[in-house]
Design a protein around this nucleic acid. Sequence first.
DNA 1: ACCTGAACACCGTTCAAGT
DNA 2: ACCTGAACACCGTTCAAGT
Lengths: 166, 166
Amino acid sequence: MSLLAREGIDAVRVEPLAERLGVTKGSFYWHFKDRAALHAAMLEAWRGVATYEIIARLEAGGPSAEERLRRLIEPTASRGKAGRLETAIRSWAHNDAAAAKVVAGIDEERIAYVAQLLREMGIDPETALLRTKILYLALIGSFFAAQSDQLQAGPELWKEIMRLIK
Amino acid sequence: MSLLAREGIDAVRVEPLAERLGVTKGSFYWHFKDRAALHAAMLEAWRGVATYEIIARLEAGGPSAEERLRRLIEPTASRGKAGRLETAIRSWAHNDAAAAKVVAGIDEERIAYVAQLLREMGIDPETALLRTKILYLALIGSFFAAQSDQLQAGPELWKEIMRLIK
DNA sequence: ACCTGAACACCGTTCAAGT
DNA sequence: ACCTGAACACCGTTCAAGT
C-alpha cells in the first residue's frame, strides 16, 4: 500500500515486491493468482478503511456539525499518508473499472454523511446535497490541483467555502 | 496522445507504438532518445494547447463575463476528448515532477483568466481569486469524482455554484 | 536520414520439484 | 503450506549494419 501511495499502481510489481521481501517472485503466485489479484485485494483493503477513516476524522471534531465540517477540509487532508493513497487510487480508477467502482461507493457514503451534517445545520435537504457535492468536488480537486503557491488551497479558501455554504 | 487519453501514460510504450506504425521498435530511437523523451515531448505538446483551448472555449461564449463563465463549467468538459486527456495528464502529474510542473503552469494561467472574469462581474479582487479557486477546484474534482449517478456534476450543481459565486 | 535485426536486461507467469 | 529454479513471453534499450 505504501508503494501504491508513493509511486502509483503501476509500480506495484511482482518482482520488486518479492525482492523486497527476500523471496523469489515465483512464491508470489502461491499467495495471489496474479498481479491483478493483488491489485484487487489492495482495492478491497482500501474500501474497508476509506469511509471509516474520514468519518472518524470528522467525529473527532466534536459534537457540533459545523465543527465537524471544518475537520473535513483541513488542508492537511491532501498531504498526509491517507491523502497520497487516495489520490493514487483515484488516478488508478481513471484507467480501471474495478477501482472506479470502489471509489464511487466511497464517494456516495461520504457525501451522504456530509449532506446530513449540512441538514443538521439547518439547510434544506436539496440544497444540502448540492452544496455537499460542491464541497466534496473542491476537496477532490485540491487533491489533484497543482501544489503551486497559486492554487494552494489555504485556510482562507476553505473559510470562503464555508461562508458560501452555510 | 489518444493512447495517453484512453489508457494513461504507462500504456504509452515503445514496442506497441512501433507495431502500430508498422516499423521495428529500434527505429523509435532515431526519433526520441528514449521513452522518457517521448513522454516529455507529449507534455510540451499538451502545454501548447491546454490554456489556449480552454480560453478559446470561453471566448466562444460571447462578450459577457457571466456567459463566458457558464461555458467553463459546461458538464461536457470532463467527458470530451480534451477532458480525458487532461485527467490522464493530471494522474500522470501525480507521480511525475515534470508533468506536475506543466500542470501547475496551466492552472495558474487559467485561474488568472477566470479571476479576471469575476472581477469584470464586479467582485473585489481578493474575493474573485478565492472564488475562482473554489470554482476551479470543483471543476478539477468533477474530472476525478466517480461517474456515479450520485456525484454526477449535473447542471443544477453548476447553477448552485454560480449562484454562490456571483 | 531513417530503418532493421540481433542482443541484452527487466519483469509477469507457469510449473515441476523441493521442504 | 509455502518456496525455489528454470523456462518462456513481453518490452525498453543499444548498436552495428543496411539503404
